[in-house]
Design a protein around this nucleic acid. Structure first.
Length: 811
DNA sequence: TCGCAAACGGTTTTT
DNA sequence: CCGTTTGCGA
């Protein structure tokens, strides 16, 4: 059954024989059906925790083992490097041969590969550099300065969004319909930006996608070549694809004829509309229904069996998401049993909420032996992490915050990379600008301005323009360029490591940070850059250990095609050499230098998005960042109107539904225990806000909840006994039988006084539209900040902002 | 050219 | 409230 010829040329030919049957063992019926689908397009609706990645990788392995395709015929695309790596790792473990012949990667990674292979056809230099978002912004700022754009009216950041947005929609400047003068101006600047990038030989992320889409669209021979090659295309997280990515997939999959796709390949799209949380950055869930229609999808499979959570948690998730109207429809189920109820907590303030979390966490670790890294605290916005961090810090609980600057985005690393990029491409003006006077070498804004004008007049790069600048400024500028030139000479033929080390010396970066008082960390990072380069060289097989690619049947066929273009209708020199490093010129077979390849790597993969790993630590992250992860215990904090759902999203229905999906994602991260909390008051942007509990809390089934604070809509009417523990019920801490600490139970009781003008004073009874009648316990603040603490028999004690809450005084 | 104070902005984010 | 950026004065 196993086709031996697949092993031909593979270096692991001595690997133990695989029993194909083992591949399909332990799959449930839905998974098995998905893995063994016949050729043809298919949509897999994969619920959270339903074994999506497993299905995807097993499908590939099954296709290969059953001899339906060779590695060269597989294209699998993901959104993140992490997902791509995981797929490669799992496949390597499953298959007895090298997986390199397959195209597995991120959209951007594969686009890069395509553009490198066909850079001439794509109109790009072989060594084109990739701009990340920071680089793009500085390029735009530079452009705005040059054309004296009013940065008040056209903030560079917004221009960046505009340009990225256009590209995501597949639009060039000429395609944008501009009716108002502002849009016209933006389109004009978009065009100028494009010209500038082209001149400098750089592409931004959007350009990687758009340019390779256009390459496929406009070059029929090339397109058909890849269409023939990729028999099976698999797309992960399909609900997150944008318009352009979908169009790109269509180009690879076949030819559109009358709104339908004529295709000989099979596209397997895997996604979950309920986990679509990136509409704000251009993702189009609608691609799923478009896909079904345009690809005439015959097979749709739902993976609804969840292997992650207990049913109390899943019931909450299902109930919540059922409030959305725009759904393909799916219900998660488990056979793991009910598990513990979902715990809900109300805190008087955000500080108390954080204290409570920390206390719970300490008990979980101490008494239940939960590993700290199995506990996650999720929040809607990054600003919320501050309080939690400080409480964890004070309690001495190790924690790790996801988000923030990644390795290759750090200033010192960007500086170093800019020097390296100038070695590769002296015309990269963005890099030139970044380091021309860093470390300071007496080249001020004046000199740079003169240089820019000279360059513009001559229509050349900054580097080429230095000789035309006279005076002391000119001498200094020429000195800088000479320094780069010398460095380029010196590092010819040197290893990547030596090149970087030499650059760090010669640029003066190391010296600069040695003299900085806070420079030690930065020097550490620069050393880490050397390490990163070293391991890149080893992993990617540069240098002496370079691995020859296994040549499979498919690659041989490709090579044959290439050699007889006429008979196959291919352009001469339009070949499919397999490109191991994503940087091989298809025409000449020339590959990027280790340095150039490393720079691509740095741009495409900004590194880990988390603080230092190592010790067992509680995980803090936004809900967005938690997608795809799972934990034994999950806390979701700040479940308040205005925060979650976020106020900016709550106005329109689509926005609210996306917020709800976000909540759905958050809930489904938990395996065993889920905590939900909200606070009556919260410090945000320097102001105390009094938020109502999130509507999402009301959308959860009461049967699956356990209120830790004494309020349960429609249930108990008792008020919390602050300061004691007894009001919190039994089994609060089910596993240990102990009670949570008293820390949380002390609300901040503000000085009690009467606020003039509201007529609301301590002791009176008021009526609230939602909470009913309640007794005023305290009043504080003035004006818009005025608020009252009110005890509602049915809903507990709350702080309400008098400016917002509509209260009437009951006599 | 540098340092400091005022001003600004503050959902979510991968590549 | 708080981190980042800008602008001004020395």
């Amino acid at each position: 059954m196993f086709p031996l010829d697949l092993l031909d040329g593979a270096e692991e030919s001595s690997a133990p024989a695989h029993r194909p049957s083992s591949l399909l063992d332990n799959l449930n019926d839905e998974q098995l059906a998905a893995v063994t689908l016949p050729a043809g397009h298919a949509l897999i609706l994969a619920g959270a925790g339903s074994g999506k990645t497993r299905v995807l990788t097993t499908r590939i392995a099954w296709l290969l083992q059953s001899g339906q395709v060779t590695p060269g015929g597989i294209l699998a695309v993901t959104f993140t490097n992490k997902a791509a790596k995981e797929m490669v790792a799992r496949l390597s473990a499953m298959l007895p041969y090298n997986v390199r012949g397959m195209w597995i990667g991120t959209f951007h990674g594969l686009c890069n590969r395509l553009l490198r292979a066909h850079h001439v056809a794509a109109g790009l230099p072989a060594t084109f550099q990739i701009l990340d978002t920071q680089d793009q912004l500085s390029a735009i700022k530079r452009l705005c300065k040059q054309y004296q754009v009013d940065e008040e009216r056209f903030p560079p950041k917004q221009l960046g969004w505009f340009i990225a947005g256009c590209k995501e929609e597949g639009m060039r400047p000429k395609d944008v319909v501009a009716s108002d003068p502002d849009t016209k101006k933006k389109v004009e600047l978009y065009q100028l930006y494009e010209d500038q990038c082209q001149r400098e030989g750089v592409v931004d992320f959007g350009e990687l996608m758009l340019r390779s889409f256009e390459l496929l669209r406009d070059d029929a021979a090339l397109r058909q070549h890849y269409q023939r090659r990729f028999r099976f295309i698999l797309v992960d997280e399909f609900q997150d694809t944008n318009k352009l990515q979908y169009a790109w997939l269509k180009q690879l999959a076949g030819e559109m004829v009358g709104g339908r796709l004529q295709s000989s390949s099979s596209v397997l799209a895997v996604g979950d509309d309920d986990q679509s949380i990136y509409a704000f950055r251009g993702a189009r869930v609608g691609n799923m229904t478009d896909f079904v229609r345009e690809f005439d999808v015959q097979h749709q499979i739902k993976l609804e069996q969840n292997y992650r959570s207990f049913s109390n948690i899943l019931d909450c998730a299902n109930a919540l998401i059922s409030h959305n109207s725009q759904r393909l429809g799916k219900n998660l189920r488990t056979n793991q049993g009910a598990g513990e109820p979902v715990r809900v907590y109300e805190a008087p303030t955000d500080l108390d909420e954080a204290s409570w979390m920390v206390e719970e966490i300490r008990n979980l670790v101490r008494q239940d032996g939960v590993p700290r890294q199995e506990i996650a605290v999720l929040y809607r916005s990054n600003a919320q992490s501050r309080v939690i961090e400080s409480k964890l810090f004070n309690a001495g609980v190790p924690y790790r915050v996801y988000g923030g600057l990644r390795f290759f985005e750090r200033a010192e690393i960007k500086h170093a990379l800019a020097y390296l990029r100038l070695l590769e491409n002296p015309h990269d003006d963005t890099s030139f600008m970044r380091v021309v006077n860093f470390p300071a070498r007496g080249i001020g804004a004046r000199s740079v301005e003169t240089l820019q004008e000279t360059a513009r007049a001559a229509g050349c790069s900054l580097s080429d323009a230095v000789t035309a600048v006279g005076g002391a400024a000119g001498t200094k500028l020429q000195g800088f360029v000479a320094k780069i030139d010398v460095l380029r000479e010196e590092t010819q033929g040197k290893s990547l490591r030596q090149t970087i080390e030499r650059m760090l010396e010669a640029s003066g970066l190391i010296d600069f940070y040695l003299n900085e008082k806070e420079g030690q960390d930065r020097i550490e990072n620069l050393k880490e850059l050397v390490n990163a380069a070293e391991s890149f060289v080893t992993q990617e097989g540069f240098g002496k250990d370079a691995i020859a690619l296994p040549i499979d049947e498919h690659s041989r066929a490709d090579a044959a095609l290439t050699q007889s273009p006429a008979s196959q209708g291919l352009n001469p020199g339009l070949p499919m050499l397999d490109v191991p490093l994503g940087g091989t010129d298809a025409e000449t077979g020339e590959t990027l230098s280790p340095l150039a390849a490393f720079l691509v790597h740095a741009a495409l993969e900004a590194g880990d998005n988390q603080a230092q790993a190592g010790q067992e630590a509680v995980q803090l992250m936004t809900v967005h960042a938690s997608k795809g992860l799972e934990f034994d215990v999950v806390f979701i904090g700040g479940l308040e109107e205005g925060l979650f759902p976020h106020e900016n999203a709550a106005s329109d229905k689509g926005g609210l539904e996306e917020e709800r999906r976000l909540m759905y994602v958050a809930i489904t991260r938990a395996r065993k225990r889920l905590y939900l909390s909200h606070s009556q008051s919260r410090m945000l942007h320097g102001q105390t806000r009094f938020n109502l509990p999130s509507r999402f809390l009301d959308e959860l089934p009461e049967a699956n909840l356990k209120w830790l604070t004494a309020k349960q809509p429609g249930f108990g009417t008792f008020t919390p006994k602050f300061g004691g523990g007894s009001a919190y019920g039994n089994g609060f801490r089910a596993a240990s039988g102990t009670r949570s600490s008293e820390v949380f139970a002390n609300p901040v009781v503000p000085p009690q006084k009467t606020v003039p003008g509201h007529g609301i004073t301590k002791g009176i009874t008021v009526f609230h539209a939602k909470f009913g009648e309640g007794k005023v316990l305290a009043v504080e603040g003035t004006g818009d900040d005025a608020r009252a603490q009110i005890n509602f028999p049915r809903h507990g004690t709350k702080w309400l902002a008098l400016a917002i809450a509509k209260l009437t005084i009951v006599e």
